[in-house]
Amino acid sequence: MDIKEQIKQWKKVSLAKPNRVFSMYLNTDRADPDQQGGEWKIHLKNGLNNFEKYLEKDNNKEEQKNFTIIKDKVLTFMKENEQSLAKSVVIFATADGSIWFADKFQMPVTTDFAWDEDVKINQLKQMHEKFPKSGIILTQREAVRVLDTELGTVKDTHIFELDIETEDWREYAGPHRAQATVGNGSKSTQQDQFKERFEANRYRWYKQLAATLDRFAKGLHWDNIYIVGEKDEVHDLKSNMQKNITKVVPKNMLDHEPTKIIKEVVFK
């Protein structure tokens, strides 16, 4: 279930004591001047301690037990992910495990903690409205890389590469692409011949792939589509796709890191 559908489900949640939902938005952005010393650890500790003190005064033993279960899970998650934190962490949790959502995001949040009958989805909803399910399509001649993204995070990667001999696009698993086969002869001659052949057939070859990309957009429920690459290549691919293109970025970024791509393409 994607975040959009999950948010719809969380809207329906309403728990009675001693059951409660823990909601946490934690700013972990190292680029933030207020986070240079890892201050998120202090905010996390204080946020959890405040709830413990409140529950001790309320003297509801069952509710205290439920909070302790969640606190332990939250601290374990933060410890396991401390070395790979991005700009923020969002956690929603219940003691019985019926709700457990914990993820790191490249989008900023305002640090906030809640222990209540419902899931505090407002910030996450705003984040999703800013960066919904989106596809980033990166072209570079015979190679096309597709990033399935949501909330500033890459959910999946697909690599397509043209087999020059069969004129078919092949999909490769994983983040790394194969090398194109361009025939026999010297390397420079091969490259020149391949370039000439590719330029002569580019529109037709991109048209073949465009139908597949349209199916991706529909099946993965992309609200936005970004195409990145050389001007002529991007133009041909965009012209052959039926889906509306949100933004075109005329740069070669095929082999760049996903975080850099997202920052340059979506947030800039």
Rank of each mutant, 00 (worst) to 15 (best):
I137M: 09
K87G: 13
K41R: 09
Q191I: 08
D163V: 12
D103F: 02
S23M: 06
T212L: 14
N46P: 14
G229Y: 04
E63K: 08
Q140S: 00
Y54W: 07
G174M: 11
M253N: 02
I227N: 15
L237C: 10
H158K: 07
M241L: 11
R202W: 14
D255M: 12
T181C: 11
R177C: 02
N252D: 15
R204L: 13
R30D: 11
L162R: 02
K71C: 11
F67R: 12
N27M: 01
K65A: 13
N224G: 02
W222L: 03
F160H: 09
D168C: 01
T157M: 05
L254N: 00
F198N: 02
E165A: 06
L75V: 09
K11F: 03
L151W: 02
D32N: 10
K45D: 15
N252C: 02
N27W: 07
H221S: 05
D96L: 04
L44M: 01
I164T: 10
H221C: 07
V234K: 06
D29P: 09
F198I: 06
Y25Q: 10
A102E: 03
A217C: 06
K12C: 13
A200E: 07
I3V: 14
V266K: 00
E167L: 15
F194Y: 01
A143I: 08
K65I: 01
V234I: 04
K133F: 08
E129P: 05
E129I: 03
L138E: 09
K11H: 03
L147E: 06
Q140N: 02
N27Q: 14
K57R: 12
K61E: 15
L209V: 13
I137S: 13
N244M: 06
W10C: 08
N81W: 00
T94P: 11
V119C: 11
A178E: 15
V89T: 06
E264G: 05
K41Q: 00
L209I: 12
A173Y: 02
D72L: 14
D163G: 03
I99V: 04
V154Q: 07
V109P: 01
K65T: 06
Q191L: 10
K218Y: 13
D148E: 11
L138S: 07
I262Q: 00
Y172V: 10
L124P: 00
S98L: 05
W100G: 04
K120S: 15
E167R: 15
E142Q: 07
G219L: 03
K218M: 11
G37E: 10
N81P: 03
G183F: 10
I137L: 08
T94Q: 14
K45L: 14
M24Y: 05
F51A: 04
F77T: 04
Q126A: 01
H176T: 04
K11Y: 07
L44S: 01
T189G: 08
L213W: 07
M107T: 05
T149G: 14
R215T: 11
I262K: 02
V146I: 05
R141K: 14
V182G: 00
F131K: 03
T189E: 01
E142R: 01
A143Y: 10
R215H: 14
K238L: 12
S14V: 10
S239G: 15
T68Y: 15
V248Y: 03
E80H: 04
E129G: 05
V109G: 02
E233D: 06
V109F: 07
A143G: 12
K130V: 08
K104R: 14
T166S: 13
E117V: 10
S186H: 10
E56S: 15
V266N: 00
